[in-house]
């Protein structure tokens, strides 16, 4: 059974149809990509899945549960986590505090216990911190995490955002342009890291990505959106040779389909 199912999802903003009659099925432990030109509706779709936007038509199912009427925190509790196109950390909080916010739902101590400093609260806090440090090591964030998160270099901010998503213990992770703004070396590291997330942690990955090399390298299935509609779906090889995709990207018929897509990402 597919882990994430979208059936006929439509999202309108006033007169604009951002996503139209969209169908999607993602198998557990898959790595799937959403691609498409700017304004195609990729991030809108992420926002619908993660509960940021109510959808106008259709339904969204996660592991069989309808999620399109749920609040964001309820969706997070079901096991969907996400990152953001423009990194959205809690800038005034430390690195480790950022991560620990993601662990909130797995902690249960109440305010009275915290005020009294109960033993159970202290133990829970200690194990939460140990877990946060473990996750930080896993994503490759060095140090004790006491630095202010906004002082981290860009690449580490990206990794912190992923660490914060990972500690919620998701089964589906939505990554919105995880390699945006990275140099080729960083991009390669990130690509390998995304694969590790699936291989080692068994997390299903759905990513939006403009860097075609990344997409073609790690995706098992690719879904192409244009003007809010799905125009193609398939394996990387099928997508690379699909004339409609080429047209959507280049605007007219191209002669050498694979080469330009493999080398040049459209400017974001």
């Amino acid at each position: 059974m597919a882990q994430l199912v979208a059936k006929g999802v439509t999202k309108r903003f006033g007169g604009l149809v951002a996503v139209r009659d969209f169908d999607l099925e993602i198998e557990p432990k898959a790595i799937a990509s959403l691609i498409g030109p700017n304004g195609a509706g990729k991030t809108t779709l992420f926002n619908c899945i993660a509960g940021w936007y109510p959808i106008d038509e259709g339904e969204l199912l996660f592991e069989g549960h309808p999620i399109d009427k749920l609040r964001r925190d309820q969706i997070a509790r079901l096991g969907i986590a996400r990152t953001y196109q423009n990194i959205r950390l809690f800038p005034g909080m430390s690195v480790v505090e950022n991560v620990l916010v993601g662990y909130h739902q797995h902690m249960h101590s109440g305010w009275m216990g915290a005020v009294m400093g109960l033993r159970s609260v202290r133990e829970e806090e200690a194990s939460a911190q140990a877990e946060a440090l473990r996750i930080m090591q896993f994503v490759g964030l060095p140090g004790s995490g006491k630095d202010q998160s906004s002082n981290l270099p860009y690449g580490e901010q990206r990794r912190l955002e992923i660490a914060r998503a990972l500690i919620t213990q998701p089964r589906l992770l939505l990554l919105d342009e995880p390699t945006a703004g990275m140099n080729p070396a960083e991009t390669r590291t990130m690509t390998q890291f995304i694969r590790r997330l699936r291989d080692e942690l068994g997390i299903t990955i759905l990513l939006i990505e403009h860097e075609m090399r990344v997409v073609m390298d790690i995706s098992e299935r690719i879904t192409v959106l244009d003007h809010g509609e799905k125009i193609a779906e398939g394996t990387p090889r099928e997508i690379q040779t699909n004339p409609r995709v080429i047209e959507a990207y280049l605007g007219h018929r191209a002669t050498a389909p694979a080469a330009p897509m493999g080398q040049d990402a459209p400017a974001p």
């Binding site: 993660a50 509960g51 940021w52 609040r71 964001r72 925190d73 969706i75 997070a76 509790r77 986590a81 996400r82 953001y84 959205r88 809690f90 800038p91 005034g92 909080m93 505090e97 620990l100 916010v101 993601g102 662990y103 909130h104 739902q105 902690m107 101590s109 305010w111 915290a114 609260v121 829970e124 806090e125 939460a128 914060r164 998503a165 919620t168």
Partner: peptide, 23 residues
């Protein structure tokens, strides 16, 4: 210094993201 304090701070900083993390 508790889980609640962190949740409050996260709401102050960015309540949308805080909610998406399960708060």
């Amino acid at each position: 210094g508790s889980r609640l304090g962190r949740a409050w701070l996260s709401i102050r900083e960015d309540e949308d993201v805080a909610e998406a993390l399960g708060v």
